[in-house]
Design a binder for these strands. Structure first.
Length: 278
DNA sequence: ATGGTCGAGTATCGA
């Protein structure tokens, strides 16, 4: 089972590239973020034509998250589970696809340390932990993926000194993210690849992509039973290249079937951390 | 990166 996550930074602006990428990569399940669409503008038919059922939780101008699946979608929950203080923005969507509990998230950016939106971000991550506790169990197959707007550790930024004092790297954000993971999730990319400098997002400005000034903030968290079946995981840096790219690259993870071992044998050997290193 | 760019939408704001 191949699961992907991609912050597309406007699905309207990106639909052609997303369609082409789906054909090339053929994921079974896709988590999208920042569709920036209202639900009635979501391109359901375009995805159906490629064999995907889709659910979308959107609001219009900003945010917006979606799940695509080749094998059905049930038990859909928009936003936080009942009983948790609701989010008035469309940043979270949960569904069950082929026996896997799938959650797509677009965590608030935070703007600046100490800004009201920064405190909102920390509270949002605390509520995400409650959401997991409410909707899933760590001994099931659970995947939580998306744009977390937090770089989990210093290997995930180009220069920790240059980033110091900004959002995405503060101890409070990292602790809040670690609390989410402590529910019972593994960052499968970091489990498989330990090197510094493997990024999923690069600012559009100042040629940062070409200078390799980025961050790894797009993450695939899997519950232990699923993480134990990881065959390979990579960042598709090629999707950040060329005309009108998103500022994020997709992350793709392949998991073996439940009765098989995730030792990479199904992939025919070692698979690297990135596509398109140059 | 304190912004050189995008995408929203049409003046600026958010990332």
């Amino acid at each position: 089972m191949r699961i992907a996550t991609w912050n597309v930074n406007s699905l309207k602006a990106r639909l052609g590239r997303v369609e082409q990428w789906l054909v090339e990569v053929a994921p079974d399940i896709v988590c999208l973020q920042e569709t920036k669409l209202a639900d009635d503008a979501f391109p359901t038919m375009a995805f159906a034509a490629l064999g995907y059922e889709a659910v979308h939780h959107g609001e219009g101008r900003w945010n917006g998250v979606a799940i695509l699946s080749r094998s059905g979608i049930d038990q859909v929950v928009d936003g936080f589970a009942p009983g948790i203080e609701p989010d008035d923005e469309a940043r979270l969507l949960s569904a069950t696809c082929e026996g896997v509990r799938v959650m797509t998230v677009y965590v608030p950016n935070g703007r600046a340390l100490g800004h009201p939106m920064y405190h909102h971000k920390l509270s949002w991550l605390a509520r995400l932990r409650l959401h997991l506790e409410t909707l899933a169990r760590p001994d099931e197959d659970v995947v939580l993926c998306g744009d977390f707007n937090v770089a989990p550790d210093d290997r995930d930024v180009w220069d920790p000194a240059a980033c110091h004092g900004g959002t995405h790297v503060s101890q409070a954000e990292r602790t809040a993210l670690a609390e989410v993971a402590r529910w019972g999730l593994v960052d499968v990319f970091r489990q498989r690849h330990q090197e510094h400098g493997l990024f999923s997002w690069w600012d559009y400005r100042a040629g940062n992509f070409h200078k390799h000034l980025g961050m790894r903030i797009d993450l695939v968290y899997a519950s232990r039973p699923l993480a134990d079946r990881l065959s390979w995981v990579l960042i598709d840096r090629n999707a950040r290249k060329g005309k009108l790219p998103s500022d994020h690259a997709p992350v793709v993870a392949e998991f073996a079937e439940p009765d098989a071992r995730g030792d990479g044998s199904r992939s025919g050997g070692q698979v690297g951390a990135q596509l398109g290193q140059t």
